[in-house]
Amino acid sequence: MTSTQPKLKVNVSEAFPNRRRGGDIRVCLSPKTVGCTSGFGGFVELQPGEFVSEHYHPYSEEFLYVIEGQLEMTVDGTVITLAPGDSLWIPIGAKHRLVNNTSAPARGVFQLAPLAPRPELGHVDTEPQPNPDSPHPEVGGAK
């Protein structure tokens, strides 16, 4: 790769762990990491009992694909159980909360698009964050 070629590949181990809303969320592909312009995506891991606090995206729809374990996503009050191989679409503006109610870790990949006009407008929290003081970069970044 030359200095004029954009970075195309990011390994999850390079992504900063964001634990602010709960779990281990790692934005791998984003405007900050690879220069993409239409959305961002990454990896989420929840240990038993962990959750991602309720929030919504006023500009983006979200897509979640479960690769391991079992998760429950509550979307606008409706609980949806997800297992490996399941995909879920979360519409723009839908409040959602993700939880692992099992005794085993669960992992998934997510994507959000389109981007909000500015990173700080991308998420609106509707419940307290479990780790509000946890450091996190705006929409991804390297460790």
Rank of each mutant, 00 (worst) to 15 (best):
A104E: 15
P130S: 05
V99E: 15
P48C: 06
R21N: 04
V109T: 08
V75L: 15
P128F: 07
G41F: 10
V109D: 00
D86Y: 09
Q47A: 14
A142V: 02
S103W: 04
P114F: 06
Q70N: 13
L71G: 09
Y65Q: 03
F110S: 00
V139P: 00
D86E: 07
A113E: 00
L98H: 03
P31F: 08
K9Y: 11
L71P: 10
G122K: 01
P48F: 06
P128E: 11
S38Q: 12
T102M: 08
P48I: 06
N131A: 05
E61A: 14
S3T: 14
G22E: 00
P128R: 06
R118L: 12
S134P: 04
I90L: 14
G39E: 03
T4Y: 06
T126P: 04
T102Q: 10
H55G: 04
Q5G: 07
G22N: 00
P91I: 09
V139S: 03
D125H: 05
Y56L: 15
V12E: 09
S38G: 10
F16G: 00
V66M: 08
L46R: 00
Y65A: 01
D76K: 11
A15L: 07
D125F: 12
S60W: 03
V44L: 14
D76I: 13
P119Y: 08
D125A: 14
Q129D: 01
P117A: 10
C28K: 01
G93C: 13
E61I: 05
P84N: 08
L82C: 09
L64Q: 00
Q111Y: 08
K7D: 10
A113H: 01
Q111T: 05
T102D: 07
L71K: 10
W89F: 15
I67G: 06
T126E: 12
E62W: 01
G49K: 02
G42W: 06
W89S: 13
Y56M: 13
E72V: 15
G49M: 05
N11P: 00
V44H: 03
E68R: 15
Q70G: 08
R21T: 02
S30E: 02
G41R: 07
